[in-house]
């Protein structure tokens, strides 16, 4: 499936068709596997959102508000308990299991806990997205080496993730998410473990994907200052309820690290 080609007739008709759309989405976690006496958590409460193609969005809210849960729905790790999720104009409920992998390949994910493959060195970790696409080493070798240089880890190409610092692992996680140039990049706290300078570099890397590829970007963060500085649309979430702003709201009182 080539999403660009498949969507092009629709896109011409409606170029502003949302790239990601949630309609009345609720998500409940069952604490216990047993349905009868399990404690249930309503992580997302009737969420509506609409993200434009090529847009950059900051998702923000206090710890436990439901940021990661929202992103998990977006990168297809979970299905909503109720409501409708549309990606690239396609209702995911109408997709068969065989179509999902191709959709996932259009989505790059930076996990909050990195989720690098612990037994693979940096090179092999960055090669994973290519290999799941069935590509041969000669097709991706240069891309991997280049990107490793970009994140300043060329000299650690043969090391395992466990030998890296948290910030270094984070850089690799971001590199793995962007390396196949996905149309939607979802980053859960991508700068949580690095100093501001490295944080800017990483955001820069993510923004390059937006500039050159027109990818839609969603960045979850606690960082009040970063959201303000970016001046981009904001998805603010608190206790599972989401509000979408086109520009950063002046009162972000519920930010995790709000200093004001």
């Amino acid at each position: 499936m080539n999403i660009k080609n498949q969507q092009s007739p629709q896109d011409k008709k409606n170029p502003n068709k949302p790239w990601v759309k949630f309609e009345n989405v609720c998500l409940t976690y069952n604490q216990n596997q047993r349905k009868d006496n399990g404690q249930r958590t309503l992580a997302l409460d009737n969420v509506n959102l609409s993200l434009k193609r090529g847009g950059v969005y900051y998702l923000t809210g206090p710890s436990g508000a439901g940021k990661s849960s929202l992103l998990k729905l977006m990168y297809l790790a979970l299905r909503p308990t109720s409501g409708k999720v549309e990606l690239f104009g396609r209702d995911i409920d109408n997709l068969s299991r065989n179509e999902l992998p191709e959709l996932r390949r259009e989505i790059g994910v930076v996990f909050q806990d990195f989720r690098l493959l612990p037994h693979l060195n940096l090179f092999d970790n960055l090669a994973v997205p290519f290999r799941t696409r069935g590509q041969e080493p000669h097709e991706y070798e240069n891309d991997v080496i280049d990107l490793l240089g970009w994140i300043g880890l060329s000299h650690k190409v043969n090391q395992l993730p466990e030998t890296l610092s948290g910030g270094e692992q984070q850089r690799v996680a971001i590199a793995r998410a962007v390396i196949c140039k996905p149309r939607l990049l979802i980053a859960d706290e991508p700068t949580g473990n690095v100093d501001p300078q490295m944080g800017d570099l990483l955001i820069d890397l993510i923004m390059k994907l937006n500039q050159y590829r027109g990818s839609t970007i969603v960045i979850a963060t606690h960082d009040h200052e970063m959201v303000k500085r970016a001046g981009r649309p904001v998805l603010a979430i608190e206790a599972g309820k989401l509000t979408q702003y086109e520009t950063p709201p002046t009162h972000l009182r519920f930010f995790g690290r709000d200093k004001t």
Binding site: L103, V109, T132
Partner: peptide, 16 residues
């Protein structure tokens, strides 16, 4: 299962 899940989320087909 952690590794399987990562491969799955990165877009590996079941057959892969």
């Amino acid at each position: 299962s952690e590794c399987v899940q990562i491969l799955h989320l990165i877009g590996a087909e079941d057959e892969f």
